[in-house]
Design a binder for these strands. Structure first.
Lengths: 187, 187
DNA sequence: AAAATCGTGTGATCCAAATCACACGATAAT
DNA sequence: ATTATCGTGTGATTTGGATCACACGATTTT
């Protein structure tokens, strides 16, 4: 649970007592490769803070094509956030690509911590602010860029994922076919 | 300033004294059609809460093509949020499409209010949460849907904008050419 | 060790949407 | 009132990327 404290204290200070309280809302879980944390149709009870491993949050369209909304690695939060925040059914899957550990907590945890500790509300607001900006950048990229530019942006942002994740999945994240992606760094 | 209070009290309660304080951070501005609130390259000092009128937040690529990141109407917040939060230069423009009024405030206002009033931090967190979910839906739409589906989703979400905004601009929001959009509801 | 599946490259074909081009009524500007 | 330019539809042409198809070495599975 040490990394949880570090993670939070990058943004706000916590006393030992406060951290103990925060901690009590989180549960540790080991995750195997190919394990699913969320399946389409599930009640989304939890959000996850990744401690290690790599994960993908994705959905599947009627034709069975898969689209990756988010990758997640150490220090990132993930969930089917639409379903999580609205407490509805998942429209997405979360799959572990590289084994690791996660901490999970409920929406109640988030809300209660935010209520009890002003700093924790601040913490979540800062995280959301960053997430909002990152998503906006992604929207801009999807709206206006060529496959080439998308690939370059991805390589710049996540050089590590480029190594550890199959190109097929990177294509699913970029919204480009596997073949087109393959021809990019060839040409 | 009445609508500001209403807007905030949809989410949190405020005493008169608290609201007075909140209010003091906001300034009213009338905006004419075709007026720009933000220009590419500007320091983005403010975020805007729309009271009336319609606005577009957009950017322009190297070839001069325009892409709309966000429309805004009464009750919506807008800015070049990447630049606003990071206090950097704008990469986008904000243009008024239908004349109206906005309230504007600085990043300092947001941060100070969040610090002084726990409820205001809550307010901003809730707003960001909603924005985050909305953006995620947009990302999913951009990743996987056909022009047809994008148009239908837009029509469902914003039937009013469909009426008041030129189709050309809706095309720029959907990431589709004007011509393709035009052929959708013809066929 | 053999068989299946996975990850990846690459050629050939196809197609949806972009681009180019023009028309024409409706606003807006001079 | 006359001249621009705006908003929109629609035809013709082009094209970038999807799709289909196959190859082949590297992992996994049995």
């Amino acid at each position: 649970m040490d990394s949880l404290r570090q993670h939070i204290e990058e943004i706000i200070p916590l006393t030992d007592a406060e951290f103990d309280h925060v901690q009590s809302f989180f549960t540790l879980k080991k995750v195997r490769k190919h394990q699913y944390l969320v399946n389409e149709g599930d009640e989304v009870k939890y959000e996850y803070l990744v401690l290690s491993g790599i994960y993908r949050v994705f959905y599947v369209d009627e034709q069975g094509k898969e689209y990756i909304v988010q990758f997640a690695k150490a220090g990132w939060w993930m969930s089917d956030y639409e379903a999580f925040f609205k407490q509805g059914k998942a429209s997405m899957f979360i799959e572990c690509l590289v084994a690791g550990e996660v901490l999970y907590a409920t929406l109640d945890a988030r809300e209660q911590l935010s209520k009890e500790l002003h700093q924790m509300e601040h913490f979540f607001r800062v995280k959301l602010t960053n997430g909002y900006v990152a998503q906006q950048q992604r929207i801009k990229l999807l709206l206006s860029s060529t496959p080439q530019q998308r690939y370059e942006a991805f390589a710049r942002l996540y050089p590590d994922l480029l190594q550890q994740v199959p190109k097929k999945l990177i294509a699913e994240y970029l919204g480009v076919s596997r073949e087109t992606l393959s021809r990019l760094y060839a040409g």
